[in-house]
Design a protein around this nucleic acid. Structure first.
Length: 448
RNA sequence: GCCCCUAUGGUCUAGUGGUUAUGACGCCGCCCUUUCACGGCGGAGAUCCCGGGUUCGAGCCCCGGUGGGGGUACCA
């Protein structure tokens, strides 16, 4: 086999539209994309929709949306696997004619019975019939070795393999067959996908062999787990890309985090731009064991990305996320206190919608007689201000602190509660400044 | 049951026969400080899953267990 067979790289992401794009799928897509972009290669998007029962157009759209949001693009496709059924039928007939495959009506029960008789570790072998589903003939001797870029060689003894069903009785192709035909025709060089496909690979390799085609290189990625070590699911919070978007994460942060989930190189950097990622990503360095999705680390990383955005950019993101306008000033004083887009409104929404009434504990703690007396003094000092500037506000309030011989927080916290209704908010001088004189004085008076 | 993969602090990882076992998240403390954060500094936390081997020497190599995961569909 020539080295030219594998370069330039042609990779693919081939989701099945049976649900939303999960984080594990997003990672597979990202790894493929990084390989293509890092090597001037080509990224093919194929929709594996041969399961007509479970595949829906809505799911296809949802997956495409998720990829676009992640800014993972593709050069060819999306191509529906079903649209290639004619070609599948053609190859199927070739395998049938060549004796590499045969028709049989054997059922799951028959397979069970066969194993009961020949041993559990003996792969099922059927006999050719005039009609029925199509099975690939697996030789009894020998073995198929999967040369995996992340795992090394894995040997599957043919005796253990069942003759796989590659087409239904009606002639429609099944996954293990369609995937091999399509990858071969698309001249895919590297198949990078989840580990759940590792045991399918020998079957696919056998299809390539029957077709007389050189197979691509394979890399199987470890699966993603939730915090409890079990398969990642909705129970763990965000499990799909859509949920990540709704939770207020930035695509760039998600890409960075996901790239590092199960992959690392010798460099210690944690914050890596997508460009840098595509330059450095090496699939052979992907870790072999399943990784737990740690949302806390994603939150931290997202906060870092958030703070690196220009104010106007972040404002635009937040206005799109909240559906509100005129957020710029509030964003400016809140940006270092939030980790996700979703954190913004709970922190700063009071500036626009008035103080929250929900935090009774904060109100009971700070709006005491003492607190109200302090508020009154603050009100007087602020009312007297000729100019509503940040400096003037700070000076006036520090004057109140000094005048009352109080601790700063005994003056500032009551103001915070008066303005926000809670004990947490952006800086108090900044908040007063952004809120403006009238609203500020009004809220302080109302709480006094 | 059978086939296959896998195993470094709570989590993600670096490590490729000789290190006080790397960095990050999280956690704790200190500094900053009007709250919460951000930022800075420091700290705790790992019998490198267990048991055998190979070797002068093993987290790294081999064998066997155990735990975890995947597959075992006329799903993908």
């Amino acid at each position: 086999m020539s080295i030219d067979r594998f370069y330039p790289m042609r990779v693919r992401f081939a989701p099945s539209p049976t649900g939303a794009l999960h984080i594990g799928g997003a990672r597979a897509a990202l790894y493929n994309w990084l390989m293509a972009r890092g090597s001037a290669g080509t990224m093919v998007l194929r929709i594996e929709d041969t399961d007509r029962e479970r595949s829906t157009e809505e799911n296809v759209e949802q997956i495409l949306d998720a990829l676009r949001w992640l800014q993972i693009d593709w050069d060819e496709g999306p191509i529906s696997q079903v649209s290639r059924s004619e070609r599948h039928g053609e190859v199927l007939q070739q395998l049938l004619d060549a004796g590499h495959a045969y028709r049989t009506n054997a059922t799951g029960e028959d397979v069970k019975a066969y194993k009961a008789q020949h041993g559990q570790d003996r792969g099922f072998r059927g006999t050719a019939e005039a009609d029925g589903a199509v099975r690939l003939r697996v030789p009894d001797d020998g073995a198929t070795v999967v040369h995996d870029l992340v795992r090394g060689d894995t040997t599957f003894q043919h005796v253990h393999l069942d003759d796989p069903v590659i087409a239904r009785a009606d002639g429609t192709a099944l996954y293990n067959f369609a995937v091999a035909v399509d990858d071969a025709d698309a001249r895919i060089t590297h198949v990078v996908r989840g580990e759940d496909h590792l045991s399918n690979t020998p079957k696919q390799l056998l299809v390539y062999q029957a077709m007389g085609v050189t197979p691509p290189l394979f890399a199987h990625l470890p699966l993603l787990h939730g915090p409890d070590g079990k398969k990642l699911s909705k129970r763990h919070g965000a499990a799909s890309v859509q949920e990540l978007r709704d939770a207020g994460y930035l695509p760039a942060a998600v890409r960075n985090y996901i790239a590092l989930l199960g992959w690392g190189d010798t460099d210690d950097e944690t914050l890596i731009s997508t460009d840098e990622l595509s330059r450095r990503f090496d699939v052979s360095r992907v870790s072999k064991n399943p990784a737990q999705f740690d949302e806390k680390k994603l939150r931290w990383m997202n906060g870092r990305y958030l703070r690196e955005l220009e104010l106007d950019e972040l404002t635009a993101e937040l206005e799109a996320f909240t559906g509100r306008a005129g957020l710029r000033e509030a964003v400016a004083i809140s940006r270092e206190k939030i980790q996700t887009l979703a954190d913004f409104w709970p922190l700063a929404g009071f500036i626009f919608d008035g103080p929250s009434t929900e935090d009774e504990k904060a109100q009971a703690k700070w709006l005491t007689d003492e607190g109200r007396a302090s508020l009154q003094a603050s009100h007087e000092a602020l009312s007297a201000l000729p100019e509503w500037t940040l400096e003037a506000i700070e000076e006036a309030l520090q004057g109140v602190v000094a005048g009352r011989e109080a601790k700063p927080k005994d003056v500032f916290q009551p103001i915070r509660v008066a303005l926000a209704g809670t004990a947490v908010s952006p800086g108090i001088f900044e908040t007063l400044h952004v809120l403006g004189r009238d609203a500020s004085l009004e809220r302080i008076a109302a709480a006094t």
